[in-house]
Write a protein that binds this DNA or RNA. Structure first.
Lengths: 331, 331
DNA sequence: CTGAAAGCGCTAACAG
DNA sequence: CTGTTAGCGCTTTCAG
């Protein structure tokens, strides 16, 4: 910038004014500066500027997800990116893979890069440590799972209600033996869906013996094996409620391999790509990842702009999508 | 940092040494510094440091994709992220949506943030402008599509060969009327796949009248409509080659709605999530997005580390996955 | 082993 | 409308 100033024969501050489009620079001067910038192949350094700028903004948003390659996370990512892009903000993202021990180091790495705000899909269960980051000026919004031991904004879906709805739907087709298939119960979403399942089972008066719950299904292969063994035991269920997208895929594979996909009903939480083209189509409780991402981004930017209202809990409604697998009647 | 130094009763440079784990700080001193850092809730500023540091590294990698929510892009993203993470590098990503006019502004925004390297899935067709960025120290690796008017590394797949293989496969099941369904021919991958299709058609001696090519299919809905109208015309094809994942989805929907999914053969370029669970399963030429992302990241970090060998063109092999839709014989 | 001073590229504050 | 000076938080250089 100094070089540009010298070449254009102006003061360094004038160059700064041109670069930032500040008011009141004579057209001729501005033109000379522009030319010098081109000749010298000048690129400004945003970080150097924010070092001295009063607001200290880095125009960068952090995004910590479970896995950027999961379709749910990816859709959320894209939605947040679009909001950020609109505001000239870049997005720094990373995948925690549900590993609680990775969360704090990753947050630290982002803090070190002076992000203005953070959208966090947490892997850990104690977020008290984030109070220090917030005090240091980072705005944080939780997505998919609420904060624990910390007061902060979050954007979630009604996991419990959605799961309950799934059970009631299955029961309305005559099912009295419904199995629950879930991810690790350390995930708050997995727990909430289990609670919703139990709510439904309870209100319908189903026996717990007829409502086996299997959890700890961390990927589709584990889920597939679990479902297969479920049907090797006596008194197998007539319907399945799968509480996560990868688990649903495992369940589908298992039913297919057993030739039961048209005998046993299945409702999944979270939509699947091409879920409508399978036969039968997969009935799901869909979460609007785009909406979640958009709302979270809007929330975090509102905080960055100084909104200091009490922490909000935004609940995005789920959508029940009937496609066939959930409407198979009990034998 | 100054504050920490004061509180610990040491010089600022000593704090810097502790923060960077540099050699030769007395244990007792280091401990005092650590304590002061905790008490003051100190967080270093990476960008401020790189301002003065001799290597000027920002420890940040840029990633410009077509769309972070597309499964192919997302898998590539994750693979690159893993390589970066290993090296303590953060990833700044954005989606170009195949809009050539967005490419240069986005690159500029990243340049302004002093990224060390860039992995680019280009949307434009003239990359000469990047020479200035490279001269300014940015290492660039192209993915999925090669650079144009610029000499730079790239990691691509054998689009032409894969497409040709698809045609030959279909012909081996007796097909003589095979239609090509493609994305915009401005995309080099779409063009290469078309060329491969024509290679196959030519070497098999099929007439061009029997080998209609339809392109400009930018999303699954457009693709679906195009396929439907194909079968409303006289002499419809007995097999389809779809050159892109979303186009394949559209083709599947069209065949389903016409009740032809077991009559008309289909081979798609790029795999689909759950493609094996559809009926019939979808035969595809799969691209290894993870491998592409990993290799591109390794390439860019090698360049950052000073590798100045001639530009490389890395070709990742495609994988032919037989699942049923491509093995339907001609009537 | 430790510290003081200079300066990275930029913007704030103020003076012309 | 334009320029000068100081200083953001850090690392470098060099001197203890």
């Amino acid at each position: 910038m100094k070089d540009v100033a010298k070449r254009a024969g102006v003061g360094i501050k004038t160059v700064s004014r041109v670069v930032n489009g500040e008011s009141y620079v004579a057209e001729a001067t501005a033109a000379r500066v522009e030319r010098a910038m081109n000749e010298l192949n000048y690129r400004r350094d945003l970080a150097a500027g924010s070092l001295r700028r009063s607001d200290r903004r880095s125009l960068t948003l952090g995004l910590l997800l479970a896995n950027v390659a999961n379709p749910f996370d990816a859709a959320l990512h894209r939605a947040a990116e679009d909001v950020a892009q609109e505001l000239g903000v870049s997005v720094l993202s990373a995948s925690l893979d549900e590993r609680a021990d990775r969360e704090q180091p990753f947050v630290h790495a982002l803090a070190t890069r002076r992000i203005d705000g953070l959208i966090l899909m947490p892997a850990s269960h104690d977020h008290a440590y984030l109070a220090a980051e917030i005090a240091a000026g980072m705005s944080i919004v939780f997505v998919d799972r609420p904060p624990e031991r910390l007061d902060a904004d979050c954007v979630v879906v009604d996991n419990r209600g959605g799961a309950r709805q799934a059970v009631e739907h299955l029961a309305s087709f005559g099912h009295r033996r419904i199995a629950f298939l879930g991810d690790r119960p350390t995930l708050s979403t997995a727990r909430a869906r289990l609670e919703g399942f139990l709510d439904g089972v309870g209100s319908l008066g189903l026996s717990s013996a007829a409502s086996p719950t299997i959890d700890g299904l961390t990927n589709e292969y584990v889920a597939e094996a679990a479902v297969r063994s479920l049907f090797e035991a006596s008194d197998p269920p007539t319907a399945l409620f799968s509480a996560q997208n990868l688990v649903t895929v495992g369940a589908i594979r298992a039913l297919r391999s057993l030739g039961l996909e048209r005998e046993v009903a299945l409702v999944g939480f979270d939509d699947l790509p091409l879920g409508d083209l399978l036969q039968p189509g997969i009935t799901v409780i869909a979460q609007d990842a785009i909406q979640i991402g958009r709302l979270a981004a809007e929330r975090v930017f509102a905080r960055i702009e100084g909104d200091d209202s009490p922490a909000q809990r935004v609940v995005v409604p789920t959508r029940f999508i009937v496609r066939g697998s959930g409407e198979i009647p009990a034998a």
